[in-house]
Design a protein around this nucleic acid. Structure first.
Lengths: 122, 122
DNA sequence: CTATAATGTCGGATTATCCGACATTATAGA
DNA sequence: TCTATAATGTCGGATAATCCGACATTATAG
């Protein structure tokens, strides 16, 4: 078990990373062009990233995790099973991001209420 | 706030990543040569990585996280990075993460209500 | 202090990236 | 459906990063 990673393992891992990055982007309804501009890379570079043809730098990865509201662990498939935030939570976070501070606080209180009501499940 | 990352931010982030990687390696008492062999890169390449002079690929990062028995989130300083989000949003996302799906949906609808009420700020 | 291991530095060969032009595919509207 | 346009994909060559060995410097043991 835990064999030494081969070059092909790398390619597979890169492809899966690219797929997750693409999924996350489309989920937020962003264009390659927009994300590429955010990362300050060319659009075709993002095409290559999402198809696993270009390496992703660690810093780029953290920036993407922020933009996509996902943990870097999820994007890298760190724990194939237990992901970072559930996708609907990420969606919520995005919608919440441009609410006013007061509204966010009110939403937080409501979240607390829901949590206490159902006893904070797993 | 939440300014666009500059080139210098990248360099700083890379340096900090390198420092954490070096710390993790020394903690395990490994030599650069051993880790480099594990990653199948030259020893001097690891020297450059740990001093922030060479980029770290996402795949390399996950391999190092395994070898060093750390999360990629720790190595990238994810907590530090999620300061990119407004603090209360990150906090909310965390609290929301273990609510049930139904509660999350209800919370999402409430967020929509708040949004429409104040006309989608920011 | 000396011997040796470990790490750091540098230059140029090697390899990956970048980016624009063009091709292909998805999407919206008549 | 057909068409216009947006979005994404592909490719080649200019550009930039990496790689790696030789040598320098620093840490550690004895």
């Amino acid at each position: 078990m835990t064999g030494i990673p081969t070059r092909e393992d790398d390619e597979n891992a890169r492809r899966r990373l690219g797929e997750r990055l693409r999924e996350a982007r489309k989920y937020l309804g962003l264009k390659q062009e927009e994300v590429a501009a955010y990362l300050k890379i060319g659009r075709t570079a993002l095409t290559d990233i999402e198809s696993g043809q270009r390496r992703v730098e660690a810093i780029e990865l953290t920036r993407l995790a922020q933009l996509y509201r996902q943990s870097v662990g999820y994007l890298t498939g760190e724990d194939e099973a237990s992901a970072g935030l559930p996708i609907d939570v990420a969606h919520l976070a995005r919608r919440v991001a441009d609410l006013s501070v007061e509204d966010r606080e009110e939403l937080g209180r409501f979240a607390e209420y829901l949590r206490s009501r159902s006893g904070g499940g797993a």
